[in-house]
Simulated scan of single mutants.
Amino acid sequence: MDVFVDFLSRIDNPEHKARTEEVLTWVAEKFPNLVPIIAWKQPMFTDHGTFIIGFSVSKQHLAVAPEKAGMIHCAADIAQAGYDHTKELVRMPWNRPVEFSLLEKMISFNLHDKADCSTFWRK
């Protein structure tokens, strides 16, 4: 997880930093075969050179990006969790617990769906 140290050090709010570190650590421990990287100045996890999930930080939330296909696959779970979202990302507010089961579903879907993908992004 050394790859995320510089990213985490730039998060000013200690609570946001701790939550982000918790989520990134959880992903790394739950899916130890994923490769943690920084791309486009954001923390991401890849598998065999293909994007699996990415994160970004704002004042109001931690954004989780599983690509559009992951959003579509998990639409009902996202709605049930009550998270605000766009076509490409889920906004997990700082003042609510993280739905780790939703993260696990997104990541597992992308691992399975992109098992034979040879590009970083889906085409």
Rank of each mutant, 00 (worst) to 15 (best):
G70Q: 00
A76R: 14
F55Y: 15
R96E: 09
L102V: 04
D12V: 13
T50I: 13
H112F: 01
K123N: 10
A28R: 07
A28Y: 07
S56D: 15
Q60C: 08
L34Q: 01
L89T: 14
E21M: 07
F4S: 07
D47G: 11
H61T: 13
A115C: 03
F120S: 04
F51N: 14
C74H: 06
C117E: 10
I53R: 13
E22S: 08
L62S: 13
V98C: 05
L111I: 07
R96P: 00
P66H: 11
E99N: 14
V90F: 03
F120A: 05
M44S: 10
H85G: 02
V98P: 04
I38V: 10
V57E: 15
R91F: 03
F109G: 03
D113C: 03
L102G: 01
D12I: 11
M71W: 13
P66E: 10
R96N: 05
K105Q: 10
H48L: 13
M1Q: 12
L111N: 01
K114G: 02
I52Y: 05
R122N: 09
V57S: 14
N110M: 03
I72C: 06
N33R: 09
K59Q: 15
A81I: 05
C117H: 06
D116H: 05
A18K: 13
E99T: 06
V64M: 12
V35T: 13
